[in-house]
Simulated assay, not measured.
Amino acid sequence: MGLIAAGLPGLAALGALLFTWMQVGQASKELRISEQGQITTRFNTAIGNLGSRSLDIRLGGIYALRRIMEDSARDHPAVVSVLSAFAQEHAGSSAESLKKPLDDTRPFVNTPKPDVQAAIDTLARRNPDRDAGAVIDLSKTDLRHLHLPGEAAIRLPRVVLIEADLRQAYLSGADLRAANLYSAHLDNAWLDKANLQGAALYRASLAGAALWGANLRGVDRTCAELGPTKRGECVDLHDSQLNGADLRNAKLSDVNLQDAFLRSADLRDADLARANLSHADFTVFSGAKAAGVSLEGAGRVGADLRNAKLRDANLQGAFLAGADLRGADLTRANLTDADFSGAKLDGAKLDGAKRDGTTGLPR
């Protein structure tokens, strides 16, 4: 009896501890339910605000959804879907915007509406790891002059931009890995230092785009716009800025790179078969990295490298059979083991070029 009496205080203390733990657990559960209820209320209110005729109220709804996305991982995918649908609905159709030429003299006239800009900005700054399968679909939208600040916060991997009008958009440093840019219009867009690794560029137009320092490793090629008969069918990179771009393993056969700037570009093992590189500028201090690059011609027409500036370029092992190199500057270029069988070399400058193991070059 004495032992039982001595143990009663301990049992009472244990019972009190268990009771307190159960109360804390219940309170915590009730708090979570209350918080979820509050988030649901906030979510519904924000959705209602998106339908307002007042711009201020719509912007308030977008910023409320941004806060919900930050506070609740569970609601994050739903917010992504809502804001994507809102931006696509309110941005306007690229089918209409593409009928009009871009007025370079008035760059801020055709910018996205403030609420569309805010919605896309919110999507670009989210944490993609919380998407849980939600897709940002901005296909066929008018996003001319879209401006997203050039910083690491721009995260749009796997974004769908099919047939979107992104002419002169500012996407410097954007994360666009595996983006679907099928038939997208990115003429004169700022994509410097952007990560386009694995992006689908079929029929995309990037004429005049700034792509220096961009990561284009493994981009999904197709053909380039090479003339009126193929207009709109191919990747167009003519007159683009690709200085320092990473194009390793990129599949860009048939791509139009006429007048493109490729200084310091890394083209190792890239597929540029039948590419139009007429007047392309590869000039660098240390030589463009192009070892193993394929510049294979098609049929009677080889790669178009007329007047190409390949001074000091590293074209070791390059396949240039049938290429048109008339007037090309290959001064001091490394042409070791390169194949020039059947290439047109009238007027080509080969002074100081390394020719060990080359095939098809005149003595």
Results as ranks from 00 to 15, higher is better:
Pro9Gly: 03
Ala13Gly: 01
Ala16Trp: 12
Leu17Gly: 01
Gly25Asp: 13
Gln26Ser: 10
Ala27Lys: 08
Lys29Arg: 14
Arg32Gln: 13
Gln36Ala: 13
Gly37Cys: 07
Gly37Tyr: 03
Gly37Trp: 05
Gln38Asn: 14
Arg42Cys: 01
Phe43Ile: 01
Thr45Ile: 13
Gly51Met: 08
Ser54Leu: 12
Ser54Pro: 04
Asp56Met: 10
Gly61Phe: 13
Leu65Asn: 03
Leu65Gln: 06
Leu65Ser: 06
Ile68Arg: 12
Ile68His: 15
Met69Thr: 06
Asp71Lys: 04
Asp75Ser: 13
Val79Arg: 06
Val80Cys: 04
Ser84Trp: 09
Ala87Lys: 03
His90Trp: 03
Ala91Lys: 11
Ala91Trp: 11
Gly92Phe: 11
Glu96Asn: 05
Lys100Pro: 01
Asp104Lys: 06
Arg106Val: 14
Lys113Asp: 13
Ala118Val: 05
Ala119Cys: 08
Leu123Tyr: 01
Asn127Asp: 15
Arg130Pro: 00
Asp131Ala: 13
Gly133Ala: 06
Ala134Gly: 07
Ile136Asp: 11
Asp137Glu: 09
Leu138Ser: 08
Ser139Cys: 08
Arg144Trp: 05
Leu156Met: 08
Leu156Gln: 04
Arg158His: 12
Arg158Gln: 14
Ile162Leu: 14
Ile162Trp: 11
Ala164Asp: 05
Asp165His: 05
Leu166His: 10
Arg167Trp: 13
Ala169Ile: 02
Ala169Arg: 08
Ala179Gly: 04
Asn180Cys: 02
Ala189Gln: 12
Leu191Phe: 06
Asn195Phe: 06
Ala199Gln: 07
Tyr202Met: 08
Tyr202Thr: 09
Tyr202Ile: 13
Ala207Pro: 00
Gly213Val: 07
Gly213Leu: 04
Ala214Phe: 12
Asn215Tyr: 06
Val219Glu: 09
Asp220Asn: 11
Cys223Phe: 09
Glu225Gly: 14
Glu225Ala: 12
Leu226Gln: 15
Gly227Arg: 05
Pro228Arg: 03
Glu233Trp: 10
Val235Arg: 06
Asp236Cys: 05
Leu237Asn: 06
Gln241Glu: 14
Gln241Ile: 00
Gly244Pro: 02
Gly244Asn: 01
Arg248His: 14
Ala250Asp: 08
Leu252Arg: 06
Asn256Val: 00
Leu257Arg: 02
Leu257Met: 09
Asp266Tyr: 05
Leu267Thr: 01
Asp269Glu: 12
Asp269Asn: 15
Asp269Val: 09
Asp271Ala: 11
Ala273Phe: 02
Ser278Trp: 10
Ser278Val: 09
His279Pro: 00
Thr283Arg: 15
Phe285Leu: 14
Ser286Gly: 13
Ala290Lys: 00
Ala291Phe: 02
Ala291Pro: 00
Val293Gln: 10
Gly297Thr: 06
Gly297Ile: 11
Gly299Trp: 04
Leu310Pro: 09
Leu315Arg: 10
Gly322Trp: 01
Arg326Met: 07
Arg326Gly: 02
Ala328Arg: 12
Asp329Gly: 01
Arg332Val: 03
Ala338Gln: 15
Asp339Ile: 03
Ala343Leu: 15
Leu345Arg: 00
Asp346Arg: 07
Lys349Gln: 15
Asp351Asn: 07
Gly357Met: 11
Thr359Gly: 00
